[in-house]
């Protein structure tokens, strides 16, 4: 199962602050371009990648409150630790598991 949307993709659209240095994060094996200072939520959603699959239905999830309150945006890093994507700033080379949920 992939966290890439089957139909429409959810995308954040950059409208400002695009002059920052570029970094790369990996979603599974796939390198995604991001900018220093992005949160993980921003980095993934700017690339049209949803964050996770709900454990309780088939829905994809892509965060909701963007401020650490709703807990909708947990992603699993390659080392198995889970972090909140909306409050974690990306680091160059960060690796996120592409599969999530059961």
């Amino acid at each position: 199962m992939s966290t890439q949307s089957p139909g429409a993709t959810c995308r954040l659209v950059r409208v400002a602050e695009t002059e920052r240095p570029g970094v790369t994060v990996f979603h599974g094996a796939r390198p995604l371009p991001a900018l220093a200072g992005d949160t993980l939520l921003t980095a993934l959603l700017c690339n049209g990648v949803a964050l996770r699959r709900s454990e309780f239905d088939e829905g994809l999830r892509a965060g909701f409150c963007n401020m650490g309150a709703c807990q909708d945006c947990w992603v699993t890093l390659e080392d198995g630790s889970r972090i909140r994507a909306c409050t974690t700033e990306v680091q160059d080379g960060m690796r996120i598991r592409a599969l999530d949920g059961p």
Binding site: L12, E17, T18, G63, C65, N66
Partner: peptide, 15 residues
């Protein structure tokens, strides 16, 4: 997203 979440995206991330 929540309204606040939409604002955070813009204010703190330029998106």
């Amino acid at each position: 997203f929540t309204m606040g979440g939409a604002q955070v995206a813009l204010k703190a991330q330029g998106c």
